[in-house]
């Protein structure tokens, strides 16, 4: 039913979106914690910066990534030289582009849930001897678990659907950087590709529904605790 290229696109999309969603969460939690709990000069600017990938055209984000992290980019070249880390035209680049695009959405979800946790509980934890980071990790984070989960799911969903930044940054190489979204795009560009595009569309729907159902089940388990 699926061609080899389609199968590899499905596998790659699942891999890219999972890695992107998992890797973006620590950064999203850190940014959300800063925005929810701290006052500092330049906070408005920081907030705007966090939201930038949400409002920029995705192709601009992808192009900026290419400039910065391409093979000859300001960061791309030293990264490749010193640590052998390559993003451009590589699946890791697709994951990075998806993570960057998912970042503002994850931050929003996490921030809302952090703001809903009473900061006085963290003060209580500190009075019991917990260093600030420990207090945050053992009191605030568990109480914001449903928001973290929501952030993870929205990041995964965004990453699965990400197209513009990905195709700009890592192109559309079958078996290497072609995700479901770029595979559908390819099919729609080819004569007689409608059937294949439809099949991958159904796959996208199935993944989205599975992710939502999985997060619902997890959220219920989290909610039952305590």
């Amino acid at each position: 039913m699926f061609s080899d290229d389609d199968w590899s696109a499905i596998r790659l999309s699942l891999l890219v979106a999972s890695i992107a969603a998992l890797c973006v969460m620590p950064f999203a939690v850190a940014a959300a914690a800063l925005l929810a709990r701290r006052r500092f000069p330049g906070k408005g600017l920081f907030d705007a910066l966090v939201h930038l990938p949400l409002v920029l055209p995705p192709v601009v984000t992808g192009w900026l990534l290419l400039i910065l992290l391409g093979r000859n980019g300001a960061f791309g070249r030293p990264l490749a030289r010193c640590c052998g880390i390559v993003f451009a035209f590589h699946w890791t680049g697709a994951a990075l582009a998806a993570a960057v695009m998912a970042f503002p959405l994850a931050v929003r979800a996490v921030r809302l849930s952090l703001e809903a946790v009473d900061p006085r509980l963290e003060a209580a934890a500190r009075s019991l001897g917990a260093p600030p980071l420990w207090a945050f990790a053992t009191v605030t984070l568990p109480l914001a678990a449903s928001g973290l989960l929501a952030g993870l799911v929205i990041a995964f969903a965004k990453a699965i659907g990400e197209f513009g930044a990905t195709i700009t940054f890592v192109a559309n190489i079958p078996g290497r950087t072609r995700t479901i979204a770029s595979a559908i795009y390819t099919h729609t560009q080819a004569p007689g590709g409608d059937a294949a595009a439809w099949r991958l569309t159904w796959v996208s729907v199935a993944i989205a529904v599975a992710a939502l159902a999985g997060s619902e089940a997890l959220a219920r388990r989290v909610g039952r605790r305590g």
């Binding site: 006085r120 209580a124 009075s127 001897g129 600030p132 605790r225 305590g226």
Partner: peptide, 22 residues
């Protein structure tokens, strides 16, 4: 000294028990 190094046991008016722990 920051709060977590003062070793002061503080019983708050509203108790502030952690709701996610028994």
């Amino acid at each position: 000294l920051p709060a977590h190094r003062r070793r002061i046991g503080y019983v708050f008016q509203d108790a502030r028990l952690f709701p996610h722990l028994g």
